[in-house]
């Protein structure tokens, strides 16, 4: 684990601010609730972490809802919806494996960051209480471990996106249809990055070239395009989460992925299914 723990300059709190601008969700209430509940908890000293988390408790049916593992290890689909954490892991892995930048799920991130903030503030509250027992320290440690795991995944997710945003900055800036996939901050970053890059190229080299060679987007025969674009033909490993409708392969034949099937296919073939959540990348 230690090797994974890079020193991230990317601050999750900053991400918070970005996402909390999103209008649709009710974190404010939960936050203010946690504040008002907190002192009371502090006084009676034993209710703390557990019954505060209505969502966690409601969702759960005895064993938590990790990735359930059947006897043969197929991930059992218990019919219920996946938890926030499972959804985060799925989005993270999809983003890591996809050649193109995927639409950001701001509602999911906002929800998770809210939970993280809440767990953290509860932990701090408990820590500051001198009367907490050994048993509580131990629970605090577990809660913190989980928070750190999730922060790692969220950071890695954002950094993966950032890498793609920078790599395809010019492409993104010049294609408005891609803008919806990015958060406001990501889009601003892409635009600023493009400007800076172009200014730098112009100042350092391009202005000394003849005018016809100054463009950053020349169509040269036998040369790859100057603006990198996501390679949608790159093959990916797709795992069908449910039975999928048939799709056409580049050679014209049809393929129908059954639930649980894993195939190596060109990204363009499964793109729509991936966006609909029917397949995930592994």
């Amino acid at each position: 684990m230690a090797d994974l723990d890079w020193d991230f300059a990317f601050d999750v709190d900053h991400l918070d601010e970005e996402t909390s601008r999103q209008p649709k969700r009710a974190p404010k209430t939960s936050r203010s609730r946690s504040k008002s509940v907190a002192p009371a908890q502090d006084r009676d000293g034993d209710v703390e972490i557990q019954d505060d988390f209505d969502i966690g408790a409601e969702r759960d049916d005895g064993g938590g809802r990790g990735f359930n593992l059947g006897i043969l290890g197929e991930e059992v689909d218990d019919g219920g919806e996946e938890s926030l954490v499972q959804e985060l892991f799925r989005h993270w892995l999809n983003e890591r494996h996809s050649p193109d930048i995927l639409p950001i799920n701001e509602v999911l991130l906002a929800g998770l960051l809210d939970r993280i903030r809440k767990q953290t503030s509860d932990v701090q509250l408990l820590r500051s209480d001198p009367n907490s027992s050994e048993d509580e320290h131990f629970r605090i440690m577990l809660v913190q471990t989980e928070v750190e795991r999730l922060k790692f995944v969220i950071r890695s997710y954002m950094r993966t996106r950032l890498f793609k945003v920078e790599k395809y900055a010019q492409f993104i800036t010049s294609h408005p249809e891609v803008h919806d996939k990015l958060s406001k901050a990501e889009l601003e970053h892409a635009q600023r990055y493009t400007q800076t890059l172009e200014a730098h190229f112009t100042n350092s080299v391009l202005q000394s070239l003849p005018p016809e060679q100054q463009s950053l987007n020349e169509d040269m025969v036998f040369m790859p395009p100057m603006i990198p674009e996501p390679d949608k033909n790159r093959p990916v490993f797709a795992h069908a989460r449910r039975n999928c409708p048939p799709v056409r392969l580049p050679d014209g034949s049809m393929i129908e992925m059954e639930k649980g099937q894993i195939s190596l296919l060109s990204y363009s073939v499964i793109e729509q299914m991936l966006l609909r959540g029917e397949v995930e990348l592994v």
């Binding site: 557990q50 990735f67 954490v85 998770l112 999730l150």
Partner: peptide, 24 residues
């Protein structure tokens, strides 16, 4: 990723039911 999966344990310490982000 795999560490999210559930396993069975026999605990040696007692702990109240605790809510985590992934479930209680």
């Amino acid at each position: 990723v795999a560490s999210e999966q559930l396993v069975e344990i026999i605990p040696l310490v007692a702990m109240e039911r605790t809510a985590f982000i992934s479930g209680a």
